Every structure is written in structure tokens, then in C-alpha cells.
Amino acid sequence: MEFEILEYGNSKIAKVSAETKINSVQDATDLLGNADYQGASRIIINETSLDPQFFNLRTGIAGEILQKVSNYHKQLAIVGEYEKYNSNALNAFIIECNRGNHIFFVSDFDSALKKLA
């Protein structure tokens, strides 16, 4: 898993490279562990790095991965364009996540940094 550690304020943020692909819950768990090993408790990932099934809530992949983020006391910002999925359930899920303190769906990198700061 390729990522760059960014120092932002007093935080270390792992910015995952666009080439990295998260195709399973195990891939996400490995990413969380690798980021933690590097001292980063916050992670930024691009939506295109996630398997498209992540955004089909019926598969349960999003729930499992995001539960790992919460269980490991990490913060995650997913940068992307979500309108294309045209799913009321996904829209509601994104709104609910953005109300919390661990998972954020944002449209750009600067917004991700602000959420994780």
C-alpha cells in the first residue's frame, strides 16, 4: 500500500496514492495497520481507490470497512464525486457519516484536510 505521510498541524495524515486499490475488508485493515505503524491516525483516500462495490450498500463492504476505521480509532476522509451513484440509501449514509467524527465523504483534498485537522 502506497501512501505519503503529511504533517498537518499536530497530526500525521496518511494520504493514500491513487494507484492503491482497496478491494476487500482485509486490504482496508492492512492500510489501517500500515498507517498506524507510520504514526498516522488519519487517512485520506480517493474514491477511485475503493472497489465500486463499496458504494453498493447492499454488499455490506462499506459498513465493514468503516466499522474497522471506527474500531481502530482512526479518521478517514474519502475524496470523490458521489452524485454519480444515484442512490438515496448511499446519500443518506454519506450524510450520516459526515455528521460524525470518524468518517467523512468530501469533494476535494483541501476539504479532507480541514475535516481531519
Rank of each mutant, 00 (worst) to 15 (best):
T29G: 06
D30T: 13
D30R: 09
L31I: 01
L32P: 03
L32G: 05
L32I: 12
L32H: 03
L32V: 09
L32Q: 07
G33Q: 12
G33M: 13
G33L: 14
G33E: 14
N34I: 06
A35D: 07
A35Q: 03
A35P: 01
A35T: 05
A35K: 03
Q38V: 01
Q38K: 14
Q38D: 13
G39P: 05
G39D: 10
G39E: 10
A40L: 03
A40T: 01
A40F: 01
R42Y: 00
I43P: 00
I44H: 05
I44V: 12
I45N: 01
N46T: 11
N46F: 13
T48E: 15
T48F: 08
S49D: 10
S49C: 15
L50R: 08
L50Q: 08
L50H: 09
D51A: 14
D51E: 11
P52V: 04
Q53N: 14
F54V: 04
F54H: 05
F55Q: 03
F55H: 04
F55V: 02
F55W: 08
N56H: 10
N56E: 12
N56V: 11
L57P: 03
R58L: 10
R58E: 13
T59S: 15
T59K: 07
T59G: 06
T59F: 07
G60A: 08
G60K: 07
I61G: 00
I61W: 07
I61R: 14
I61E: 06
I61V: 11
G63V: 07
G63M: 08
E64P: 01
E64I: 06
I65H: 09
I65F: 09
L66A: 05
L66V: 09
L66S: 05
L66E: 11
V69E: 08
N71E: 15
Y72Q: 12
H73L: 10
H73D: 14
K74Q: 11
Q75A: 05
L76S: 02
A77W: 02
I78D: 03
I78F: 02
V79R: 05
G80R: 05
G80V: 01
G80T: 00
E81M: 08
E81W: 07
Y82C: 02
Y82N: 02
Y82D: 02
Y85I: 02
Y85A: 01
N86H: 09
S87F: 06
S87W: 05
S87A: 06
A89T: 12
A89E: 13
L90P: 01
L90M: 05
L90A: 05
N91D: 12
N91T: 09
N91R: 12
A92D: 11
F93S: 04
F93Y: 15
F93E: 02
F93K: 04
I94A: 03
I95M: 10
C97K: 08
C97A: 10
C97W: 00
C97T: 00
N98W: 00
N98T: 04
R99W: 01
R99F: 06
R99Q: 11
G100T: 01
G100W: 05
G100M: 03
N101T: 12
N101Q: 12
